[in-house]
Simulated assay, not measured.
Amino acid sequence: MKKKTFVLVIIALVTVGFSSMAQRVDRTNFKAGIHAGVPFGDISDFSNFEIGLDLGYHWGVSELIDAGISTGFMNAFINNDTVDFGPVEAQGDFPNIQYLPVAGAFRIYPTYDFKLGADVGYAIGINDGNTGGLYIRPMVGVNISSTTELNISYVKISDDYDFSMAALGLLFLF
């Protein structure tokens, strides 16, 4: 129940924030890209690699700040060896761990080519037994052209276990 309430509060805050910014919007950006990550924390015991899709839409609040929404898809590949994690100890094929993040996003631009920011929201668990959790993704990005961004990020999902990873991503701006 607490998770559903949290998701509804995040969605309400994002909606109110965007409607209040509507008068100040001077630019918009649709962003799509991919990222690859190396898990650590609890998940690193049974996964060595993650790959994902990033989608977002940002509105210019000022020359230095963007705010928006983000989503995507994340898939951590499981090593299908013996799994000994919490109450689970078994052998066999286990599904990859998959999330669909839904978040509010903000970016600060100290210079045109450099940005700092974060996505904060909820990661919906897709595979069986995955309940999802609070999603936090701080990032640093660098423009490598006027329509392409290279970024590094830290992903943290507070689930029944610690899903943490470092990721390198490539975004295309439209």
Rank of each mutant, 00 (worst) to 15 (best):
V16L: 06
D160Q: 08
A76N: 04
S19T: 12
G133W: 05
V88K: 06
K3L: 05
F77A: 05
A166P: 01
G104H: 04
S19V: 15
D119V: 03
K115S: 13
I51C: 10
L53W: 11
R24G: 11
P95F: 05
I65H: 02
R27E: 15
N29E: 15
D84N: 15
V120E: 12
D160M: 02
G60R: 02
N80M: 10
P39Q: 11
R27L: 06
R107T: 07
L53G: 09
D45V: 06
F6T: 08
R137V: 00
N127E: 07
L53F: 09
G117K: 05
L173V: 12
K3A: 10
F73S: 03
F172E: 00
D162R: 13
T148Y: 02
L100A: 09
G56H: 03
V88T: 09
S164L: 13
I43S: 02
T147M: 05
R24I: 04
Y122L: 07
G129R: 06
Y99H: 14
A90R: 05
T71S: 15
F46P: 03
V38C: 09
V16T: 14
G125F: 07
Y135D: 11
I10Q: 11
P39R: 02
A12G: 14
W59V: 13
V14C: 13
S146D: 15
V7N: 03
L134R: 12
S153V: 00
I124E: 12
I69F: 15
M139T: 04
L55Y: 14
K115V: 11
Y109C: 05
S20P: 04
E63K: 12
D81M: 04
V38A: 12
D128K: 08
S153Y: 01
F49T: 09
I124S: 06
G60N: 07
V102I: 15
W59G: 06
L171P: 01
V142M: 13
G60L: 04
F94W: 03
G17I: 07
S153D: 07
N151M: 03
F6I: 13
F85K: 05
S19L: 13
A76I: 01
H58Y: 14
G86E: 13
Y122M: 09
E50M: 09
D160E: 11
A90C: 04
S44M: 03
F114L: 05
S164T: 07
G56K: 06
F114S: 01
A103P: 09
G68T: 09
V140K: 01
V102P: 00
N79A: 06
T28N: 12
T82C: 04
Y154L: 13
M21K: 08
L173W: 05
G86F: 01
A32C: 08
Y109E: 02
M74E: 08
T111N: 11
L100N: 00
F6K: 05
F49D: 00
L116H: 02
F172H: 02
D93T: 09
I97W: 03
F49Y: 13
A123E: 10
S153N: 10
Y112M: 12
S44K: 08
R24K: 14
G125W: 07
P101V: 03
G132I: 10
P110K: 06
V38F: 14
D119E: 14
Q91G: 11
F114G: 00
Y112K: 15
P138D: 12
I11Y: 11
G125R: 10
N79G: 06
F30I: 15
G141H: 01
A105F: 00
F85T: 10
